[in-house]
Design a binder for these strands. Structure first.
Lengths: 151, 151
DNA sequence: CTTACTGCAAACCATTTGCACGATC
DNA sequence: GATCGTGCAAATGGTTTGCAGTAAG
């Protein structure tokens, strides 16, 4: 759980940046300094920033950047697969009466949430250090993708 | 994936309602018809409704109910454990450069997201019917609870 | 020179808060 | 009768949209 565990060094950072710019070119996207800066800030942190958090960081480099640009850029990165959204769909909360043990699949297009139940997932074993460190209230296997109706 | 699979019959519904009211009493909560109606609507559906969706349903029973009441009630149900918010809904988006394979723990209090990596979780096998039906873009093991700093 | 990106402002959606009235215990 | 819950209205937080100006290819 070392905070620095996933920090990348400057060589990796440059390498990743190069990969990113060619990924943009392939996707027909322009290489703007803002876009690059947002990407670089994103991959330099472990804290799974929100758009707002990244905005604060990138402002140190581009004081005039707007939060909207960060939001739009992150959307774009998501589309080309250069970034992922971790949790928090940005959509409304969805509730569950919790009657039956089950897992969820969420369609990224129509936002539908589909239950499925795969018994082995009910009792996946957590590593001891996690169980010791945190009070785990819920654990689940969570899938995202495109559902049969949206393909 | 039968849509009716988890529908409960009226006997189970009444039983659950009884359990719910005593749960409220134990928690020192008043038994209001709105509260009960919201709970009953929630456990009668499979579709993981948002507050808005439940609001529309409960309005058929209490035409004068407000969306705020539904929101507040769901919060309350969540607190006493009579309902859960489906993982990944609500809250602002959080991003990840996706450099390393890892899993997430999210603190319900401070919203901190902590990475952990448990190798066995990297290659959990999805059931075939899921893999066939949906285009799975991401799968993860996701934990929620209270983190060491918040206990 | 064309197209895409940025920055700003306004709009939008879901959720939260403050307050007065009403219902439950 | 005291306290908690409800309904309404206003406020907030996050995200999205429209548009004009600017920069990348």
């Amino acid at each position: 759980m070392n905070k620095e565990r996933n920090k990348i060094n400057s060589i990796e950072l440059d390498e990743k940046t190069r990969q990113f710019t060619s990924q943009c070119r392939e996707a027909g996207l322009k290489i703007t300094p803002q876009r690059v800066a947002i990407y670089r800030e994103l991959i330099q942190t472990d804290e799974h920033p929100s758009a707002e958090m990244l905005y604060e960081k990138v402002k140190n480099i581009f004081p005039s950047i707007s939060l909207d640009t960060v939001n739009r850029t992150l959307l774009t990165l998501n589309e080309i697969g250069a970034a992922f959204t971790v949790v928090g769909s940005g959509d409304a909360k969805r509730f569950d009466g919790g009657l039956h043990e089950h897992q969820h699949f969420r369609c990224l297009k129509c936002k539908r949430i589909v239950d499925f139940h795969h018994k082995p997932f009910d009792d996946i074993k957590l590593p001891a250090n996690i169980r010791k460190k945190f009070k785990i209230l819920r654990k689940t296997v969570y899938l995202e993708g495109i559902c049969d109706l949206c393909i």
